[in-house]
Design a protein around this nucleic acid. Structure first.
Lengths: 155, 155
DNA sequence: TACTAGATGCAAATGAGTAGCATTATTGAT
DNA sequence: ATCAATAATGCTACTCATTTGCATCTAGTA
């Protein structure tokens, strides 16, 4: 039975279904809005802010409201499915919680964001935990500077 | 002549004068408002947000406006005299640009902020520069977690 | 001392994020 | 499959940090 369904499903539907599965185990109710929002973040190659998620989501579900986007983002963050990143100071961005730790490098000129890997956790966490006796739940490195092409232009 | 003045000056006046000197070399005009604001940040042991700076400043100069605080903070940041730190997501905090690199550890429960030293620059910058060819101008680590006393309470 | 660009004060605007509340939809039990 | 309980949604109105426009003032300089 599910094989028939499988054959009918295109790539998009399948991704959507997978998202529903994922949501299901979190205890959150599985609504179309949530599945859609999460799907958008999963598909989104860049970091998306609430408004961009909203714009993309409305293309599919015009009645969806911005509050729902905000609330869903908070909910997904709380259950650990998405991560909130602080790339610039004016808004929050979201990405699917990544399996490998990475951080962000922001060009002050053009705003381009480059990710870089760095095992901050392993190196620093232990020291900080020992020294300050904190229980660490999250860590983020944000570096700012100028990307190659902008550096060129400035000269 | 200056010796007479020196004798008349109390600690506060002296700090204020020092601040004027500092401002003078930046090319920024030395106004009472700016000297006062910078002085407040210098004296402030904690991290201050714009509103707290405003409150403290008005005690001395009641006519000073909040816009001036914001504009001054931006100006001081631009010339590199103060640093903007992103401890929580709702507002910006400011501190005198420190000689030794340090970062912040925020308790998610009580909001307490603990600084910790870590030579991020030396360790990571080189790698990032090599790998991504960025020119790095600033870096910030923000770790979140639970401080000892809040951890206690949670149990 | 007079000029002038840069700084200030005030008030109004902006914009991200939140909250209240009536309506709707999901889920677990019947 | 139906239904009640309750979580989620869609509005709209709000909050609150930060910004902006503009008339006025003032520090630095000729």
């Amino acid at each position: 039975m599910s094989s028939i369904i499988d054959k009918k499903m295109n790539a998009k539907t399948r991704s959507f279904e997978k998202t529903r599965q994922t949501l299901n185990v979190t205890g959150l109710r599985v609504t179309n809005q949530r599945a859609l929002i999460m799907d958008i973040i999963r598909q989104g190659d860049e970091h998306l802010d609430a408004d961009e998620v909203y714009r993309r989501a409305r293309a599919k579900q015009p009645r969806l409201s911005l509050s729902t986007v905000y609330r869903t983002l908070q909910a997904l963050k709380k259950v650990g499915l998405v991560e909130e990143v602080h790339i610039d100071e004016t808004r929050h961005y979201y990405e699917i919680k990544p399996p490998t730790e990475h951080h962000h490098l922001v060009c002050l000129e053009c705003g381009r964001v480059v990710e870089f890997q760095y095992p901050l956790a392993r190196l620093i966490k232990r020291k900080v935990i020992e020294a300050k006796d904190f229980e660490i739940t999250g860590s983020e490195i944000r570096m700012t500077g100028y990307c190659p092409s902008c550096r060129q232009k400035r000269k």
